[in-house]
Design a protein around this nucleic acid. Structure first.
Lengths: 181, 181
DNA sequence: CCGATATAATCAGCCGCCTTATTATTTGTT
DNA sequence: AACAAATAATAAGGCGGCTGATTATATCGG
């Protein structure tokens, strides 16, 4: 049963084969570990390909969603970095690209001349409102392959996994709690 | 109650909140989708931090494992790229870095002057044999938080998820079903 | 008021990933 | 033999991630 994975995914298959040579390794845990990574990989790549068809990627989508949900219409770039889970330096480059693409705009803060306020543009809003329903539709078309109880069970186990890792690395950069239901 | 957590997991929380505003969205599917991504994220970052303590990352580890398992002791760089699921251009840069670090070595192929053969160095082998058991130990320490039936069930559901995505995108770049020429 | 410190954003430089050329070299056809 | 096509590896250039340094501006203590 597990060997189905072996032929299809050289990357994870080779890691699994390698781990089986490590004495004391529990193959079921190893298999789980690699499958979590592989599934995340598969889903993330798929989503990336989907978003790329609309000129987006995960990072840009998150920035758009965050800005769209901003109560006062804008965020500091440092605030965006924190919420999007990237460094401040990274958000600078990301915003550069998105500004060039016309999706966001930066305006100097009138009260603090060090800061600038970032807001979503009309173009960015239009794109977001086009892509979001498509993304929902796409993901639901795929994940409806799992039954409702299966989905519920999977979420439960994923939460437990997240908690296990959070407990093991309590000093990680981000608090990293489970997504609330 | 969920709103307390809003501040703590901005990235995936904001996506979930945003999706709940899309008409026709199934919140349970959306939650599953985001939890798969989030779990992969958490595990991948954790592993990355673990490997970084030994001067490695996922890509370098895979290259070392692949080279270590090479039957004739070496691989073409193109073969490595395919097996590690990265482009040929990417493997060039990766090998450059690893060659500088003394983990791998490139030698010209005597039969095809276009090609070079990549092999793991003694230093690379030592590092691999040091890190692999530590990685096993580390991952098992964390994932033993799930019971054996839970792990089994989770693997089963992850397989089903992988299959759902594979079925939806049968023409992915790295089909892993190489077409024999 | 002024100097020390803290903060916002960016820059510099590295890595890894991509796609699209480019350069050698082989192979295949005529 | 010669030329076209395929192939191996790399280079070029962009994006996005990081850390650490830098610049400008606020703020706080004396």
């Amino acid at each position: 049963m597990p060997f189905l994975l072996l032929k299809e995914v050289p990357r994870y298959e080779c890691l699994q084969a390698a781990s089986s040579r490590v004495p004391g390794a529990d193959p079921t845990i190893c298999e789980l570990f690699l499958n979590i990574l592989h599934t995340g990989d598969v889903v993330s790549r798929s989503e990336g390909e989907f978003l790329a068809r609309h000129g987006l990627n995960q990072a840009r989508l998150i920035v758009l969603v965050l800005l769209d949900s901003a109560e006062n219409g804008s965020f500091r770039s440092s605030e965006l970095a924190e919420r999007a889970k990237v460094s401040r330096a990274t958000i600078t480059g990301l915003l550069d690209t998105m500004e060039k693409a016309g999706l966001i705009a930066r305006a100097p803060d009138p009260h603090d001349r060090r800061a600038s306020n970032v807001k979503i543009t009309a173009k960015g809003g239009v794109l977001l409102r086009k892509v979001q329903p498509l993304l929902m539709e796409w993901s639901q078309g795929i994940l409806s392959a799992l039954s409702s109880p299966e989905r519920k069970q999977l979420v439960k186990l994923l939460h437990k996994t997240q908690q296990a890792f959070a407990a093991a690395q309590p000093f990680g950069r981000n608090g990293s709690h489970a997504i609330p239901s």
